[in-house]
Design a protein around this nucleic acid. Structure first.
Lengths: 145, 145
DNA sequence: CCTTGACCTAAAGTCAGGTTTAGGTTATAT
DNA sequence: ATATAACCTAAACCTGACTTTAGGTCAAGG
């Protein structure tokens, strides 16, 4: 049995985070001795699962739900899979969006590269005085949306 | 000249958002007639830039900084480029992280696929009764970290 | 005249996942 | 016995980009 401070050291987490997880119901089997939390193997295992699921980007409430399904056994396999499938779709969408963002950023970096190279002659400035950056960005933006 | 309601309709944005942008200093040249905001071409242009930069994931304060640099002319090209380079690096890191997350999620989906297929015979359950999901996830996790 | 609608402000609320603070209790070491 | 370290709770605070609320001004239409 471990105290909250020992567990915090083991997992390199702030004590306050463990209290927060407990408050959110992530340690349903946690026991206490005269008010003080005693973490056993079940809680360490729970914490390992929490750390793993957090890496998948699951929210606290989904982690709680998942752990509850694990208690219920094989009958909930389909539910658990659905949770991960949903999360997978979300992450794929996020990546696709970031890729478009990255395209835009690459263009902007390229644009300023050219502008800086041309600096002495100010060719870009001469072409469309004073409004060029915005306009070119918008052109690119429209072309990609 | 347009009222805040007309601009909101044009850009399909809530009025409250335009007031918020104004409060954050994103319309430095905005004028008023007896207390009421009057949006001109400069403000519409500013809004187009804001919408574009938001798509790049820039924060409000960075957008403000960028627009201020634009006012200062070519001398700030390098600053503007540095802003986009920094954001580009951040987005690239986010994508890399999400790719690892996606790897993990694909594994979890695969795992439950197998578990569901095997459902009748409960082979996986028999192998490591009651603790398998967590253990396998951790194995995978360790293998990928 | 009076109501409706569009405008205004300042301040508080929202979301998540914690962190910090204030005030109090328990355990351990001297 | 007492000091101090580690524990406890409830509640406030944090970030960011808004949104909502409460209360007020003003112009036009019926």
């Amino acid at each position: 049995m471990y105290t909250i401070g020992q567990v915090a050291a083991m997992f390199n987490l702030p004590v306050s985070t463990l209290r927060y997880y407990d408050k959110e119901g992530l340690f349903p089997t946690l026991s206490r001795q005269s008010g003080i939390r005693k973490f056993g193997e079940r809680e360490l295992e729970a914490l390992r699962v929490i750390e793993c699921l957090k890496k998948s980007g699951l929210e606290i409430k989904d982690i709680k739900q998942f752990m509850s399904w694990c208690q219920e056994g094989p009958a909930t396999y389909a539910d658990r899979k659905a949770l991960f499938e949903a999360r997978k779709a979300t992450v794929e969408a996020e990546i696709a969006k970031l890729q478009k963002t990255l395209d835009m950023l690459r263009f902007k970096c390229w644009y300023y590269d050219v502008a800086i190279q041309d600096g002495g002659e100010a060719r870009l400035e001469t072409m469309l005085p004073d409004r060029l950056p915005q306009d070119v960005q918008r052109m690119y933006d429209n072309a990609h949306s």
